[in-house]
Design a binder for these strands. Structure first.
Lengths: 223, 223
DNA sequence: TGGTCTTTATTTTTTCTTTATAAAAAATTT
DNA sequence: AAATTTTTTATAAAGAAAAAATAAAGACCA
């Protein structure tokens, strides 16, 4: 899952960034409102974490512009107490949730998870297909009950494929949701990660990730 | 579906072109307004993506001339924010939609789909005939519920035939809508692809693609 | 330093086009 | 109308091009 963090308070960023990355999110961050807006327009994020007070362009204006552009991605606002009277306003403006500073990290992480939790195809937080299970919270993958160790990129990639099982995901889709903005679109790192996943997850009879030439990859129950 | 992209910004073209092609559109591109106008007049496109500011001939002038010529194909305009006051003007002039830069790729792709979907009355994105179904979004073809794997050219060809079922489509029609401008008009690659489609889709009793000698091919319910 | 991620170079696979020939349909001649 | 010629379409198979898989080396970084 790819996040955009728009926050100018260095303290918050320096604690939040490592935590989010450790929690296996792909994160782009900026401290400037204008730049945040630009990033939001030109990339595909699954969630934006947006500070209210920002240099350049403030949170309220960013939401307004994004919604006007027709972008419907979830937005989580960070506000300080004194601004709290605005909360209804923020929600009507198009924010999906807000959290007021100071906040506990765990609280924020919970809210993020709640927002990102899609009703689709994942009950009890566990993604399943055939005898494969992936638990995003516990960073755990098992196949046939046997635990398989994955690196964090491998895990993120598998999670993304599983969340959209049955759909063909193009390299670009994958790039945009599993890698951050610095990724080279012409790199073959996706192929390499697919290869590593296959090596770890598949057997001769039990294929899992299917290549659809010229379109992308997909995970599906039936061949 | 065949698209024409008229845009002089190299950055936009270099990200857009691969994306569109990956999304299985056949795309011609030019950075010059005059040339864009020429291409639009001399080819059969299903949609034009047109930049506002162009060398040679600008977007507004191109629309005006095309509409004056009586061409009714959909046009999607790309504008920058400052030009946005012109939007009503653009729409009355004959653009079908506009999107302002910077934009998310996914956003543009969605709009393209919406526009191309407009006139036709096929339900749920799925094209059907007899026991054959084709889902353009999922890149999925089934016959009698059984999945059939097609290459992307085969898929595009079948999609084109299905979208115009009942009509006889000439080789030229097919060339113009399924292949790009570099295709050799005297090649027999169409015959070969038809052959491959037939091999994958037809049985002895269940014919699907009919040859009308000297005129072209058609797909139809009744023989 | 070991593990992870990315890059580079190479091989393999798949898809697309061309070429050559056969078959079928249409046109022409007798 | 039958026989012959010409044109159009079908097929198989080789060749070219593009896409994907792989191996291995390099970069990064906790």
């Amino acid at each position: 899952m790819r996040l955009l963090l728009v926050e100018d308070d260095e303290d918050i960023v320096s604690t939040l960034l490592p935590t989010l990355k450790a929690d296996n999110y792909t994160v782009d961050a900026t401290g400037n409102g204008e730049h945040g807006y630009f990033l939001a327009c030109t990339n595909s994020y699954d969630l934006i974490i947006l500070d209210y007070n920002l240099p350049g362009l403030n949170g309220r204006e960013i939401i307004k512009k994004l919604r006007y552009e027709g972008l419907s991605l979830p937005i989580l606002m960070l506000t300080v107490h004194s601004e709290l009277n605005d909360k209804i306003d923020l929600l009507t403006l198009g924010a999906d949730d807000y959290i007021s500073k100071p906040f506990a990290l765990s609280e924020l992480l919970t809210r993020i998870k709640v927002i990102l939790r899609r009703p689709k195809s994942w009950q009890g937080h566990t993604l399943k297909i055939n005898d494969l299970e992936l638990d995003p919270d516990k960073f755990l993958v098992t196949r046939g009950g046997r635990r398989i160790a994955l690196s964090s990129k491998e895990f993120a990639l598998l999670e993304y494929l599983l969340k959209h099982q049955g759909l063909i995901l193009s390299r670009q889709d994958i790039m945009e949701h599993v890698w951050d903005e610095n990724a080279d679109p012409f790199s073959n790192t996706i192929e390499v990660h697919i290869r590593n996943l296959r090596r770890k997850l598949e057997t001769e009879e039990q294929k899992l990730i299917f290549t659809v030439s010229n379109r992308g990859y997909k995970i599906d129950e039936k061949k």
